[in-house]
Amino acid sequence: MADEKVIKFPVEATHIMMFGRSIGDYAADGADPADVVAPPTFPQSVAQFDPDYFLRPKLGEPWFGSGRNPSGIEGKPSSSGRLHAEQHFEFERPVRPGDVLYVTTKDGKTWEKESKRAGKLVFSERITEYRDGNGDLVCTARGVGVTTERPVDQG
């Protein structure tokens, strides 16, 4: 049951600084870690701590980015085409360096829609809870992904 997986997410000042720089938020640059608070979208970087995260290349395993050939994996079709439709975060308290979060994700609702620009769209929701070592809720994230029938028309 993938849904039962708990990911341990140690929150570190340097990670927050690097994440901040990538979004143009320099609050953590040169700051004392005691004064640092993570940006509201930082919890998403729990991906770094998911041992099975499929969007990270792993040594010795095939990867679907380009190498000798454009697909990276001969004969394998492109990634699912799953795009991000919505993302929501709700905080019970701020996330700070030194926090160790225990993260679980479960499926939410799914629904379908027809679109002119990308064909049939299949939406699905994922709910992620971030709890501290006492089991107290720190943050809840709700993501909505959409799988498109074809790449989104740029016209």
């Binding site: 991906a47 770094q48 454009p70 697909s71 990276g72």
Partner: peptide
């Protein structure tokens, strides 16, 4: 920083030639 290494966002060859 985020850990999302989806090649759609970092690999122009993949994005053009494979993902369309």
């Amino acid at each position: 920083a985020s850990g999302d290494y989806n090649p759609l966002h970092s690999d122009d060859i993949y994005s053009r030639e494979v993902a369309g």
